[in-house]
Write a protein that binds this DNA or RNA. Structure first.
Lengths: 236, 236
DNA sequence: CAGTGGTCTAGACCACCGA
DNA sequence: CGGTGGTCTAGACCACTGG
């Protein structure tokens, strides 16, 4: 009707967000039903439904069929942590990314590693180790194992030109990934190659990626604590 | 028509995900138009639209009005990092959460801190420091400043019963938050209170939350590296 | 049982893009 | 201009919840 600039479903979302954000509606309180919002806004149910469905996806409300929609318990702050190809990340800061390859070989997998890949102990896996640098300063030690079944041409890559992550994204479409981040002290070799003291704390990310039926890659990424941090943001 | 168990829009999503995941459709390739998928699946456009809209929301495809839908460039792995109330988190593991309050006072804000809150230097802020324990083991040192304008009753809380995070979630509805995670060594006091050596690496999270017009809280959370890690997952 | 949300249809008008 | 996606409607049937 009106020449309103905002789509109707966005208006409904804004209305509800305002009520929640201002504290008028508290966690656990009921949100008006789709029928009620239809009437109130004079719009069709599909439109109201879309608004509520998106709010549920954002974690602001909880919907239960047959019961109703309620303001969610906001006991968690959920935000996106984006893990990106390091070359792209450095380039976006307007800096120069370079890499030094310390190792790029095929190896027989030890028992634990073979397990991670779902392979037999002693099966061949690819193993690469490199140092990533931003404007000449080492910022990441990347120790990675790759499943040949997922990326057979892995070792033919010039890792100074194409980062291992990029090669894998291109040749082994990602279907699943998991990671964990912890604090640690660098090993002797990591400290030497990163050019830091052994006592300097580091962030270590363990990452495991799955491509289709294969575990594609298992990597340990070590960042000097003083040169790197993960940041994130959240907006209601 | 068929007694298919999966909703039609989920079937469309699964179809497209399979094509992308298997590498048949590569980044930049066009995805069939809504009209084409309507025909192919024999369903209405709204249903196809929902499937494609959700895939776009998940970052798997890019949609441009007038141009079409394409497979997204998968150069980033984007996953949710969920930050939760520590009491809830410990309780969910079936463990016992306790807290020890080291400080809970009102203070005059130094220049830098006042800036963070958008207050004058010397304005009164609340300051709390506590140790969180899981089954009696210290897992987090929480050093937090709170804006009285956002949570006037903050200091009246018994933090051994209601965690600062929970109090804030209840009284200062969250509209925005940002954080960063880095590795560090604990200060003397942090090491003493956490019961760890000074050389033991820690994860430090700096968190800043906004509630409506106010910056509600600024906190530094220190976790012993050997007792904590952040984990996340991603699924295409 | 009445009320809720989950899904779906068969149309429609519009803004935008590229040829 | 035709094809694309963005939005919206006015119905519909169903599964589930709660009293």
């Amino acid at each position: 009707m009106a020449k309103s600039e905002l789509p109707a479903y966005e208006q409904v979302k804004a209305f509800i967000k305002q009520r929640i954000g201002s504290g008028q509606w508290r966690p656990g309180d009921p949100v008006p039903s789709e029928a009620a919002l239809m009437q109130q806004f004079g719009i069709s149910r599909m439109t109201v439904n879309r608004a509520l469905r998106e709010l549920a996806g954002e974690g602001l409300v909880t919907r239960v069929q047959g019961s109703g929609t309620r303001v969610a318990q906001l006991h968690r702050i959920s935000s996106k942590l984006t893990i990106r190809d390091i070359h792209e990340e450095v380039a976006e800061r307007g800096h120069v990314h370079t890499a030094r390859v310390l190792l790029a070989v095929r190896e027989k997998a030890a028992a634990g590693l073979a397990d991670s890949f779902g392979l037999r102990t002693g099966a061949v896996v690819f193993h690469s180790v490199l140092i990533h640098m931003e404007n000449g300063v080492a910022i990441q030690y990347e120790d990675r194992y790759v499943n040949p079944a997922a990326a057979p041409a892995y070792l033919e890559t010039d890792f100074t030109q194409t980062s291992p992550t990029l090669h894998l994204l291109r040749h082994a479409p990602l279907t699943e990934a998991s990671y964990s981040i912890e604090a640690c002290l660098p090993t002797l070799e990591e400290a030497r190659e990163l050019g830091i003291k052994r006592g300097e704390p580091c962030l270590a990310m363990m990452r495991r990626t799955v491509s289709g039926a294969h575990v594609a890659s298992v990597a340990r990424l070590v960042y000097p604590g003083t040169r790197y941090s993960f940041a994130g943001q959240f907006q209601a």
